[in-house]
Simulated scan of single mutants.
Amino acid sequence: MDTFRDTTGTLDEALERLHTRGPERRGWLTNHGPMAVEALVRHGQASLVHRWLDAYADKLEDMPQPGAPVTEANWREALGDPRRIADWARYFERETGDRPWREVLAVWWPRLLPGIAGGATHPVIRVGHAVRTLLTTEETAPRVTELAHALGYWAARHLTLPATATATATAPVTLPALTLNAGAPSAGAALDALPAVPRQQGGILDRLDQLTALPAWPHPAPGSGPEVPGPEVPAPDAARARLAELVTAATHRYATHAHGEPIMLVHAATAPNAVLRALPALPRELWAPSLAAAWAASAAVTAAYTPKGPAPYSLTPLTSEEVFERAAAHGDDHTIKFADTALDVGDATALAAAVRSIELNEPLL
Rank of each mutant, 00 (worst) to 15 (best):
R5D: 15
D6F: 01
D6V: 05
T7E: 15
T7K: 11
T8D: 13
T8K: 13
T8Q: 13
G9Q: 15
G9W: 14
T10H: 00
T10F: 00
T10S: 07
T10L: 04
E13F: 01
E13V: 11
A14P: 03
A14G: 09
L15H: 02
L15Y: 07
L15D: 04
L15K: 04
E16Y: 05
E16G: 08
E16M: 09
R17V: 10
R17A: 10
R17N: 06
L18K: 10
L18C: 09
L18M: 11
H19K: 03
H19V: 00
T20N: 01
R21C: 14
R21I: 00
R21L: 13
R21N: 07
G22N: 11
G22T: 08
P23L: 04
P23R: 14
E24L: 15
E24N: 05
R25V: 06
R25E: 02
G27I: 00
W28M: 06
W28Y: 10
W28V: 01
L29K: 14
L29P: 01
L29M: 15
L29Q: 14
L29C: 05
N31L: 07
N31R: 13
N31Y: 05
N31V: 04
G33M: 07
G33P: 08
P34M: 09
P34Y: 07
P34F: 04
M35K: 15
M35E: 08
M35Q: 12
A36Y: 02
A36N: 02
V37T: 13
